[in-house]
Design a protein around this nucleic acid. Structure first.
Lengths: 346, 346
DNA sequence: TTTTGGAACGAAAACGATGTATTATTAATA
DNA sequence: TATTAATAATACATCGTTTTCGTTCCAAAA
């Protein structure tokens, strides 16, 4: 096991000073053509690569972006990561990913850890527990320390930072409107509790869509579940109970899993999808694509969100010190992908 | 925007030396109780946290593990990451994730980048292109530099490092045997080209299972696709063409996507799953669980793989310098999850 | 002969932290 | 009173770079 090559070692080996080596490698005119060539040849031969840690310390820049997300076994988040990764790579940044597991303490720990020199800035989506606790000190503190933060998807308004959102309200409205256009009139929604911003907004879009068709919103047709990304036994039971015996011709859900379960439940009750009841859901993953029947979805374009978030962050990082602080909120368009769970438009 | 607090700043503020501050904070007996309290109070008040980069440089340890995987929008890999993350967290390590996108050059670049000080060791699964090219210099070089590497899932034998594998052969054998036990006799396999080790081994398991039932292997019943994680239009067409008009009662596939497409194709051709043709696949993701019919799978336990890989790496990292170099290959057990795509065992 | 100026290189500080070696101060001992 | 020991603090080197500022050396100009 040979020790990693450093400037110092090269200097000793070639009997010149460290500064000379450094300058030669960076093609400084101060160094004679001869010495320069000699040093470069040596460095190349032994595959010298500068130590990133030393550079980070010196430059007080790591060229690393930290992403903190609630979950990684999750299609949407992985697409976002992919987007961030792409953009980061294009701008010569690295990416560190940390998982909060929807746990407040872990989120705080992760931020503290990464904030102590490991990254130049953050991209994050809040843990469920953080949203419930309504405690964002770890965020404001990090921002106060001059570390740029970009929030996406699960954000809170009061934090002063860039944000990337999809227009959940508009997306939901589009989804529900698709149900309305294909003839549905008795439409239920399966959503999350209101502390999850996205759930709340999607519920709002649902209501707006109905109202624009002059349909009264029936609270009995709204099911709020205390789950964000998972659909455990409890949820399944609630969905079944909710749908049982209800007179519906359309169901809108805020994620794929709820939709798949709803679809199963409806078929259990003898309903045909989409002939008796149509289904539209948010989030476009493999599940929607490969389920039977495949699901009509409102696609979130996670990759685009990731790219946008990274772009905003990198802008902040490379902006000259003096520039005025200013926060952007970017919206990513959703789009409707019609599949088998809804009837054809006439 | 206040500047991050450093030892130097605290020292200046309290009019003591930097060493004194450092020692006080680490509870050194060299510093008087009085000064110690004063310094600690100050540090706490202004929320001092040591700079990780400086520490990494000093200690020549980053306490960071690098993971390089071909893809992140992929259930199996995300479960592995989750496992690595857990184990890393338990041992106070950080995790950096990089994506190779199945691209050789990107894999090399990522490794070089992370090897230059950013991480203490690697966990990786090879890019498809790397396997095809059969060029592993970036790996051997990294290992030569004394950086421990653990490979998982997509490995190559000749690299001297720890490895974590599932017993693909045995897993496939178990899956195919399940088909045999439930009465299937004319079983096809949809697998990958042989340069993908896992595909090759699974094909082997398929053959062994058939042979143990004295069934002759029919080359016409083996479809090798040039795709690892995705199932694009080309694949779908090949699967349809392969299954069309074939007299089969069982299909084994090396991943979920192939199985879902096979299932669809079979239904298109008027076959009922599982009554006419049963299906078993490798990889246990949401798709298998939520497809209709849900799929009987050989579960890979990615999380366990991740944990094991991290454990092996951390062992290497914390082992005393002098200790004998020795490489382990760990196998993770697979298990069969019976669902609706196969008939009940009698 | 002395001055000037450029070419080619080296010394040293800095980034932030740690730990070893030293020094300064005071109290206890001979 | 002189010496020793203990206490409390500081100086300094180090990790690997970059960069500013000197320093040498030598040839050309005065």
């Amino acid at each position: 096991m040979k020790r990693k090559l450093t400037l110092k070692l090269i200097a000793k080996e070639l009997d010149v000073s460290i500064s000379t080596v450094s300058k030669a490698l960076r093609d400084s005119a101060e160094i004679s053509e001869d010495t320069r060539q000699k040093i470069k040849a040596f460095a190349k031969l032994y595959n010298y690569k500068p130590n990133n840690i030393a550079l980070s310390l010196k430059n007080r820049k790591t060229r690393t972006i930290g992403i903190i997300i609630p979950q990684i076994v999750h299609h949407f988040f992985t697409t976002v990561i992919r987007g961030v990764e792409q953009m980061a790579r294009e701008h010569n940044y690295n990416v560190i990913i940390c998982l909060s597991n929807n746990d407040f303490d872990k989120e705080v720990l992760n931020m503290e850890l990464l904030a102590n020199g490991s990254t130049d800035g953050f991209i994050l989506s809040l843990a469920k527990e953080t949203l419930q606790k309504d405690d964002f000190r770890h965020l404001t503190e990090t921002i106060d320390q001059g570390m740029p933060v970009v929030m996406f998807d699960r954000v809170v308004d009061e934090i002063p930072c860039d944000k990337v959102l999809i227009d959940d309200r508009e997306g939901a409205k589009m989804g529900v409107t698709h149900l309305l256009k294909t003839g549905c009139r008795k439409i239920a929604i399966i959503t999350t509790e209101d502390y999850v911003t996205v759930g709340k907004l999607r519920t709002k879009g649902y209501i707006e869509a109905l109202e624009s068709y002059d349909i009264k919103v029936d609270p009995d047709n709204i099911l709020k579940l205390d789950s964000i990304d998972r659909c455990d036994q409890g949820c399944v039971a609630k969905i079944k109970h909710f749908l049982k015996g209800k007179d519906l011709d359309g169901v809108f859900t805020v994620n794929e899993l709820f939709a798949v379960e709803a679809s199963k439940a409806l078929r259990t009750f003898g309903h045909n999808v989409p002939d008796d009841v149509s289904i539209v859901c948010f989030s476009d993953g493999d599940l929607s694509k490969y389920a039977t029947p495949s699901l009509t979805t409102v696609s979130q374009h996670g990759e685009q969100m990731g790219r946008k978030a990274a772009e905003l962050l990198i802008n902040k990082l490379e902006r000259p010190e003096e520039e005025e602080e200013e926060y952007t909120t970017a919206y990513i368009e959703t789009s409707l992908i019609a599949r088998e769970s809804t009837k054809k438009l006439k």
